[in-house]
């Protein structure tokens, strides 16, 4: 999903970039409420992990690959605002140091990969954990949040392409192609997110932001059994 320069014209690239910058400014102030001394190193680790996982393209269909975007994962592990900043940092570093994702495209690449994925993922996670309680809810929620976040990101790109695509193409045609391949990538995103959240939940449930007040209750019951 790292778009190069040239796919989207300058006005739409700059406009979406301005939207991204405004949302990140809000995120920077809101993240303070999510962060404490314990959460700051975890947020750094999550950013590094997402960077590493984004290098790992997995095959999804004939001659096509995909990789984790990490927005849903980051939101669940460190909170939506902090997660948004963490994944944005990854996308910015990739464009500036690794020539991955264009420079004029950076604003909308951040929007698609770090902002939309977090918003869509967090909404789905909230919904699922309201329906299914406890550890199961967190794990099922992690899978579904990640699964939905990828086609949501692809849809955001198609919207930008519809507004400022440099080519003249049938938008519905582009949408169907983008959506379907990103549902497949979303399944991979869901599996990686589920495995990662399960691992952290097993080792350090207190470090999973999305599990606060949901998994603790289970732990308290176990403690009282011992005593």
């Amino acid at each position: 999903m790292h778009a190069p320069d040239g796919f989207i014209n300058a006005p739409v690239s700059l406009g979406t970039g301005a939207v991204s910058a405004s949302i990140l400014a809000v995120a920077l102030s809101k993240a303070r409420a999510e962060l404490d001394e314990k959460a700051a190193p975890m947020a750094g680790l999550v950013a590094a992990y997402v960077f590493a996982a984004q290098m790992l393209n997995f095959p999804v269909a004939l001659g096509t690959s995909g990789h984790l975007m990490g927005g849903a994962l980051a939101a669940i592990l460190v909170g939506p605002w902090t997660g948004m900043i963490a994944v944005s940092t990854v996308v910015i570093l990739q464009a500036l140091l690794f020539a991955d994702g264009g420079l004029t495209a950076l604003g909308f690449n951040v929007f698609n990969m770090a902002i939309i994925t977090v918003i869509a993922g967090w909404l789905v996670f909230q919904l699922v954990t309201k329906i299914i309680s406890g550890r199961t809810g967190v794990i099922v929620g992690a899978f579904l949040a990640a699964l939905v976040s990828v086609p949501a990101s692809a849809s955001a790109f198609v919207l930008q392409y519809a507004l400022g695509g440099t080519g003249t193409l049938d938008i519905m045609d582009v949408f169907i192609a983008m959506f379907s391949v990103h549902v497949l990538i979303g399944i991979g995103e869901g599996i990686i997110t589920l495995l990662t959240v399960s691992a952290v939940l097993a080792l350090r449930p207190d470090l999973v932001f999305g599990a606060r007040g949901k998994v603790k209750a289970e732990l308290e019951i176990r403690e009282s059994k011992v005593s």
């Binding site: 999903m1 790292h2 778009a3 190069p4 320069d5 040239g6 796919f7 290098m55 790992l56 393209n57 997995f58 095959p59 999804v60 001659g63 096509t64 690959s65 995909g66 990789h67 464009a95 500036l96 140091l97 020539a99 264009g102 420079l103 692809a154 790109f157 695509g165 440099t166 080519g167 193409l169 045609d173 582009v174 192609a177 983008m178 391949v181 990103h182 497949l184 990538i185």
Partner: peptide, 28 residues
């Protein structure tokens, strides 16, 4: 060992014919 195949966006761009719109990266 990561797959070297084009990702979802690149594949769609190739199939739908807008991959050629991509310009070189300024920090390539």
């Amino acid at each position: 060992y990561a797959s070297g195949d084009p990702d979802g966006l690149e594949k769609v761009a190739e199939e739908k014919g807008f991959l050629a719109d991509a310009t070189d990266h300024g920090l390539g």
